[in-house]
Amino acid sequence: MLHVTQPVEAGVARVVLDLITDQVGRGWEVWLACPTDGWLPLAARAAGARVLPWHATRQPGPGVVREVRRLSAILREVDPAVVHLHSSKAGLAGRLAVRGRRPTAFQPHAWSFLATGGPLGAASHRWEQWAARWTDLVVAVSEAEASRTAEAGISAPVVVAPNGVDVDRWAPRDRAHARAQLGLGAEPIALCAGRLAHQKGQDILVDLWPSVRARVADSCLLLVGDGPTRQSLEAAAGPGIVFGGASADLAPWYAAADVVVLPSRWEGMALVPLEAMASGRSVVATDVDGMREALEPDAGEVVSAGDRTALADAVSRRLADSALCAAEGASGRSRAVAYFDVRRCAAVVGDAVAALAHAPGRSNSTSRSS
C-alpha cells in the first residue's frame, strides 16, 4: 500500500497517519511518499510505515512535472498493490504518474474547486472530471462530499468513510486544571483551533469578536495554530483575542474552552469539531460539508456559512450559559464515541482499498492501459 500526501501537518496528515496505523495493524506493508518537513514522516515511521521523500508544493505550477517524475520513480521502486492519494496536489501528480495502470484511490479531503472561483476553479473542476478515468475509488469523508462528487459530474465510484478521532485520547479533562496549565483565567473562552488560513475563516471571528464582547464582557477568543494568514489576523485583532501559536497537543486547549468554534468557508469533514465533541465541548460551526453529519443540534449549533450575525449570536449565547455548554458537551461526547471512533472509521477505508486490490483484473501494474 502506498499513500501519497503533500500536507504533512494538520488534519490531512492526521487522517493519513490513522489509516497507516490501521493498515500496519492488519499486517500490510505500508509506504508513504511525502515531503520531509512536518511531523508526519517521523510519526509514520514510528507507526511502522516506510517513508520515501516526495518534495511537492501545495499549489500547482511548473514543479508538477518534477513531482510526477519523482512519483513515477517511487512507483517503480515500491510496486504497490494500491495507491492512495490524499488531497489535491497528490491527486494531480499521482494520477498523472499512475495513469490507471494500478488500482488508485483518491481522497480529496474537500474538493479543490471549492477553494477558488474563476478560471482556476473551473480548470480544477474540469481536471477532476477528466481524471475520474484514472480513479478507481473516491474516498469521501462525508455524505455531503459524496453528493458533491456526483453533482460535479465526477464519475468515479465513491465510498463514504467519515473522519474519526481517538476518543480515548480526546477524553474530557478538568477545565480549571487546563486553564492553570495554560496560564488562563476564569473568563468565558471560545477556542478556534486549526491552520490559520482563508479556508478556516479565522478572519470572520476576528471581525465579529467586538460584537461578542459587547454582549459577554471579558470574553476571550483563543486562536491556536499557525499558517499564512497569521500576520494579517494579528494586525486586525482587537481586545480579547489571544494567539496561542502552533501546538503539538490540543487537549488542554479543548479542556480550557467553554465552546469551540469552526467558522470554515469549506471542508470535507473537519477533525476539530470531532475532537472537540470527544473532549466534551460544545461546538458552533458553519454549514459546510460534513458539519451537519458530525454535529447534531443537542451537541452545538450549525449556522449558515457567511451569516456573521448568526455566528456571533450562537457563540455569545454559549459563552453566557455554562449549563448549555455542559449539556451540549456531554451530548457531543456520546455522539463522538458512538459514531466517530477512529478505529471504526479507518476500518471502512481499509476494507474498501483491500477490495480494490483484489478486484478482478486489477491486481498488478499491467492490468489497465493508459
Score class of each variant (00 low, 15 high):
residue 2 L to T: 03
residue 3 H to V: 04
residue 4 V to D: 01
residue 4 V to S: 01
residue 4 V to K: 04
residue 7 P to I: 09
residue 8 V to M: 08
residue 11 G to I: 02
residue 12 V to I: 14
residue 13 A to H: 04
residue 14 R to C: 00
residue 16 V to H: 00
residue 19 L to T: 00
residue 20 I to V: 14
residue 22 D to I: 00
residue 22 D to G: 02
residue 24 V to Q: 01
residue 33 A to R: 11
residue 40 L to H: 03
residue 45 R to L: 03
residue 51 V to A: 07
residue 54 W to F: 07
residue 58 R to T: 10
residue 59 Q to R: 15
residue 63 G to M: 02
residue 66 R to Y: 01
residue 68 V to K: 04
residue 68 V to C: 09
residue 74 I to D: 01
residue 75 L to P: 08
residue 78 V to L: 04
residue 82 V to K: 12
residue 89 K to C: 10
residue 90 A to E: 07
residue 95 R to E: 01
residue 99 R to Y: 06
residue 100 G to R: 07
residue 101 R to T: 11
residue 104 T to M: 04
residue 107 Q to S: 15
residue 107 Q to K: 09
residue 108 P to Q: 05
residue 110 A to V: 15
residue 111 W to Y: 14
residue 117 G to K: 14
residue 118 G to C: 11
residue 120 L to S: 08
residue 120 L to G: 06
residue 121 G to I: 10
residue 121 G to K: 12
residue 121 G to L: 15
residue 122 A to M: 13
residue 124 S to D: 06
residue 128 E to P: 01
residue 128 E to C: 01
residue 144 A to R: 14
residue 144 A to H: 12
residue 147 S to G: 14
residue 149 T to Y: 02
residue 149 T to R: 06
residue 151 E to F: 02
residue 152 A to I: 01
residue 152 A to T: 06
residue 155 S to M: 02
residue 155 S to F: 06
residue 157 P to E: 02
residue 159 V to K: 05
residue 162 P to G: 05
residue 162 P to L: 03
residue 165 V to N: 01
residue 165 V to I: 12
residue 167 V to H: 00
residue 170 W to L: 12
residue 171 A to H: 13
residue 174 D to E: 14
residue 176 A to K: 15
residue 179 R to W: 12
residue 180 A to T: 15
residue 181 Q to K: 13
residue 183 G to Q: 11
residue 183 G to M: 11
residue 186 A to Y: 04
residue 194 G to K: 09
residue 194 G to R: 10
residue 197 A to L: 14
residue 197 A to D: 13
residue 215 R to Y: 07
residue 216 V to P: 05
residue 217 A to S: 14
residue 221 L to I: 02
residue 224 V to H: 06
residue 227 G to W: 13
residue 228 P to T: 08
residue 231 Q to E: 15
residue 232 S to Y: 12
residue 235 A to G: 03
residue 236 A to H: 10
residue 238 G to V: 03
residue 242 V to W: 13
residue 244 G to S: 04
residue 245 G to I: 13
residue 246 A to G: 12
residue 250 L to R: 12
residue 255 A to S: 12
residue 256 A to V: 12
residue 258 D to M: 00
residue 259 V to K: 00
residue 263 P to Y: 11
residue 264 S to G: 12
residue 268 G to L: 05
residue 269 M to C: 08
residue 271 L to V: 03
residue 273 P to V: 06
residue 276 A to C: 11
residue 277 M to R: 00
residue 279 S to L: 07
residue 282 S to I: 08
residue 289 D to T: 10
residue 290 G to N: 09
residue 295 L to P: 05
residue 297 P to K: 10
residue 312 A to V: 12
residue 312 A to T: 05
residue 315 V to F: 07
residue 315 V to D: 03
residue 323 A to S: 15
residue 327 A to G: 03
residue 327 A to V: 08
residue 331 S to I: 00
residue 335 R to P: 00
residue 336 A to R: 01
residue 337 V to E: 08
residue 338 A to T: 01
residue 338 A to M: 01
residue 341 D to Q: 05
residue 343 R to D: 03
residue 344 R to K: 11
residue 345 C to V: 00
residue 345 C to E: 01
residue 346 A to L: 04
residue 351 D to S: 12
residue 352 A to G: 10
residue 352 A to R: 11
residue 353 V to G: 03
residue 355 A to W: 00
residue 362 R to E: 09
residue 364 N to W: 13
residue 368 R to Q: 11
residue 369 S to A: 15
